[in-house]
Design a binder for these strands. Structure first.
Lengths: 274, 274
DNA sequence: TCGGTGCGGTCCACTCAACGAGACGTCGGT
DNA sequence: ACCGACGTCTCGTTGAGTGGACCGCACCGA
């Protein structure tokens, strides 16, 4: 056997450093130097030195048991504008939704062909969901993902349609044609549904959050057991929340409206969503 | 004038990269290459190259207007174990506190002589607070900070007492003696109060969250206007929440109880907090 | 008690990745 | 047309980074 690594990672210091940080996952919160060396293919002497520098700055912490991600990364991550501005505006409304419906509320943005969850308020007695703040899911099989795609530039949609549409449940949309059709529906109605497409027995409704220039910046959803959550009933609450947030986002400073660089798939998202 | 910089930053690539990332603050969410160069003292050609590498990995994003922190940092930051485990256990209880009292709820940990806020649920109509998720405050003038210090190893307390106790309001505790005295009170009662010591007109109650081995890992507080929040009334609710969280933390996997390496200031935190 | 094993940590001569002064094209303001 | 400020790119130089080898230690089964 030729060992499990063989990254022969990037030659740049930064590339190596990021490779080391990338070793950590939810399951592997704490690793030994030797393990990091094995995973990245970086010689242990180098790992030792790099980890030392990372620790000096607070990106990782050295514990008796090994190395783990440090607080400084968390602090820095919280400064990421895409996250900060949205969370600030959205959180109160998300809390309202949680109180009103008692179901799990998600806030997510699109990144490539995946969604990244920025916030998650878990409802009591809701289903265990694979989502996690800072976690990723394929866009095509989630409510938030479809809400985001429906109002995204055609290029973005094409990228997703061109990628493999992984089947996660029997109900997952797995053909580009079906996806395109559904996105058109979402554009018309303003609502995206996930009918047990990402997790069996779980449904959700999602609505897009529009920025000042009318482009999608995020999406919010409510999820719950398919037999206990009436998506039609809570849909308007979700839309109300997203509209409030969109309006609030206008108040934030923005470096002037950016030119609509890539034709949006819809005629005018703000029209149908008024 | 000799320019405002003069960092002559670390010679290591990582040091420079971190210096660049450190340029960003809440106020400066988006910077130009030239500005980053000026602030760090790194030649612009180097900044250009490093930012390119950082962007390649997603640590920063290059927009037409400049450079800003990227999503990848947020994602990584969410994996920091100290944050993740705590948030998972604490958030539901924090939501309960918010619903029950309608006041702002904080979750924070100690880092050096400062506290870092891990979570903040803002109550309706509460005072505008300087705290922010991922933000820092001096430990000696906040409720959470004192709750954390009271049950921290003596070395930690000494470090804080030895540092300058910045006066933030007329009520701020600014002498080591007064601080030590108050910490003893907190150890006895299990409650830490902030009586307009960090922000004028704002009070708060805080309780420590204990880990499996009985050492403090975090603190939770409720804050509000001094004339509208009866700290004595909500104190027991905070304690109940922190006790629940402490118990829940035991359920998480931990690499075996670590030996109590540094004598704790209190006789036995878990006794008084039972 | 003793060799084997895997760990974190250290050393040091080599070398190539990182460096940065400088040149260039392009804006936007005057 | 001029200027200044910016992002970008080039290229000869060099020292920061490298990694094979080694050390001391803790643990474990023989």
């Amino acid at each position: 056997m030729r060992s499990t690594q063989r990254d022969v990672g990037p030659k740049s210091v930064l590339g190596r450093a990021f490779a080391l940080l990338g070793c950590f996952t939810v399951a592997d919160a704490e690793l030994s130097l030797a393990e990091m060396s094995a995973r990245t293919g970086i010689p242990k002497a180098t790992v030792h030195r790099l980890v030392g520098q990372l620790a000096e700055w607070g990106a990782v912490e050295q514990t008796p048991a090994g190395v783990r991600l440090g607080m400084r990364l968390f602090e820095l991550g919280q400064l990421a504008p895409r996250h900060r501005d949205l969370r600030e505006s959205a959180l109160p409304h998300m809390e309202d939704l949680l109180q009103a419906t008692a179901h799990t509320v998600h806030l997510a943005v699109l990144d490539g062909t995946e969604v990244v969850y920025l916030e998650k308020l878990t409802g009591r007695g809701g289903p265990p969901l694979p989502s996690r703040v800072g976690g990723r899911m394929p866009a095509h099989c989630t409510g938030v993902g479809k809400a985001l795609l429906a109002f995204s530039p055609t290029a973005t949609v094409a990228e997703v349609a061109g990628s493999e549409l992984v089947r996660r449940t029997p109900h997952t949309v797995t053909t580009p044609a079906a996806l395109t059709r559904e996105l058109a529906d979402i554009r018309r109605s303003g609502f995206a549904y996930d009918r047990e497409e990402s997790t069996p027995g779980v449904v959700c409704v999602a609505c897009p959050v529009l920025g000042t220039t009318g482009d999608v910046v995020a999406a919010i959803s409510i999820s719950g057991w398919s037999n206990r959550l009436d998506t039609g009933r809570v849909a308007s609450a979700v839309r109300t929340a997203t509209l409030s947030i969109s309006r609030q986002l206008g108040a934030g400073r923005s470096a002037g409206p950016r030119p609509p660089s890539g034709g949006t798939a819809s005629a005018s998202p703000s029209r149908v969503l008024r």
